[in-house]
Nucleic acid binder design. Structure first.
Lengths: 184, 184
DNA sequence: TTGCTTACTTACTAGTAAGTAAGTATTTTG
DNA sequence: CAAAATACTTACTTACTAGTAAGTAAGCAA
C-alpha cells in the first residue's frame, strides 16, 4: 500500500469524474503530485491499468458501504446510496459509470470487463434491497425488482450528468421524486 | 447547404455518440470522407465550432419531430420520443447529452452554452407534454410536471449508457417500466 | 477576360499523448 | 556487508493532436 500509488488512483478517480477518461493525461496526475510522468507509468504501466485500478477502488468502497448498511431497513439503505451520489453531485463529480460508459467503445477489453463487473454488482445489490424492501412493506413498486433496480440506478447516474449541465438542484429534484415514488 | 459540410457534421455526430467528443480527431472525419484534415478546418475552424454545429443539428431534428407529433395524444407523443431513443440504442449510439455531459468541463463556454440550450428545450417540451397529458387523463403521475420531466429524461439518457455496458435489452426494460408507470 | 469566391490540397508548426530504456538513490533481505 | 528489490528520475521516442499559411483549380459575376 504505497502512499504514491494510492494518491495516483485517487487523483485519477477525480479526473475521470470531472474531465472523463480520455481527457486527462499522465501529466495531469504527475504534476500535482510533484513526480515525473514516468513515475506514474512505474506504478501503472498503461492507462488502462490505471483505469482498472480506479474501478476496483470504487467497487471496494461500494462493498464496504453496503456492508455497513446491511442491518438497516431497506428504504434507509437506499437513502444511504442516494446520499453517496448527492455528495458526489455537490463535489462536481459524476459517477464512474456515467463517465466511463460514453467512452466504453474506446476502452481496452479488460477495462470494459471491469466496468461490466461493477455494473453487475450495483444492479445485484439494488435488486436485492428493492425485493426485500417490498417484502417488508418498506418499499412499494410495480413490476420486477430487477427492472426497477435498473430504473433507480439509471436515475442516479443520469441525474449527476444533468446536474452538471442544469445545476445541482436538478439532482435533488430527481432523487426526491424517485425516493418518494418508492416509499408510497 | 454544401454536401461536404453536412457529411462532416453527420459523421461528427456519430463519432461523438460512439467514441465521445474528446476521443475523436479531425483525421477520423477527414479520412472516411477522403479529404484532408485542413478541409474539415475550412468548414469548422475549431473543434468547438464543429461540436456546436452537431448540437444545433440535433436541436433542429428535435424541433422538427416534436412539430410532427403535435396533434397526437400526449402518451403517444412520449412514446415517439422513447422510440427515437430506442433506435439510437439499437444503432449503438448514446444520446448527445449523455455523451457530452461527462466532458462538459473540458468544453469551451460557447459549446457549454449550446448544450444548456438543448437541455432546456427538451425539458420544456417533456414538461408540457406531461402537464397536458395529466389534464387529459392520458398520463398519470404524482408531483410537479417539471420534476417528473427531469426523471423521464434522466432515464432515457442513462438507459442508453447502461445499455452499452449491460446489453440492449437494458434499454427496453427501463423504458417499458417508465412508460407503464406514466400510463397507469 | 478579369477578378473574386468557394472548396479544397500541400506542407507545415507547436504542442501533447502514451510509453520506454537506462540510470540512481534508498531501503530491505539473506 | 553484499545483493536485490523498490521507487523513482532523466532523457528520450513515436505517434498523434488541433490548427495554420500558402497555394490552386474550378466556377461564377460584371
Amino acid at each position: 500500500m504505497t502512499l504514491m500509488k494510492d494518491k495516483i488512483v485517487s487523483l485519477a478517480d477525480k479526473l475521470i469524474r470531472v474531465k472523463g477518461f480520455n481527457a486527462f493525461s499522465y501529466k495531469d496526475i504527475a504534476d500535482p503530485l510533484s513526480v515525473k510522468n514516468a513515475a506514474v507509468h512505474y506504478h501503472f504501466p498503461s492507462k488502462a491499468d490505471l483505469g482498472i485500478a480506479v474501478v476496483m477502488g470504487e467497487m471496494q468502497r461500494f462493498q464496504h458501504n453496503t456492508r455497513l448498511w446491511r442491518q438497516l431497513p431497506e428504504d434507509e439503505q437506499l437513502a444511504h446510496l442516494f446520499d453517496v451520489f448527492r455528495r458526489h453531485c455537490h463535489a462536481g463529480n459524476v459517477c464512474l459509470m456515467g463517465s466511463l460508459a460514453p467512452d466504453y467503445e474506446t476502452l481496452t477489453p479488460p477495462m470494459q470487463e471491469k466496468i461490466n463487473e461493477m455494473a453487475e454488482a450495483i444492479v445485484e445489490w439494488v435488486t436485492a434491497v428493492l425485493e426485500n424492501g417490498r417484502k417488508n412493506k418498506r418499499l412499494h413498486f410495480k413490476g420486477a425488482a430487477g427492472d426497477r433496480a435498473l430504473l433507480v440506478i439509471s436515475n442516479l447516474q443520469s441525474s449527476l450528468l444533468l446536474a452538471r449541465v442544469m445545476g445541482t438542484d436538478t439532482f435533488d429534484r430527481i432523487s426526491r421524486q424517485l425516493l418518494e415514488d418508492l416509499r408510497s
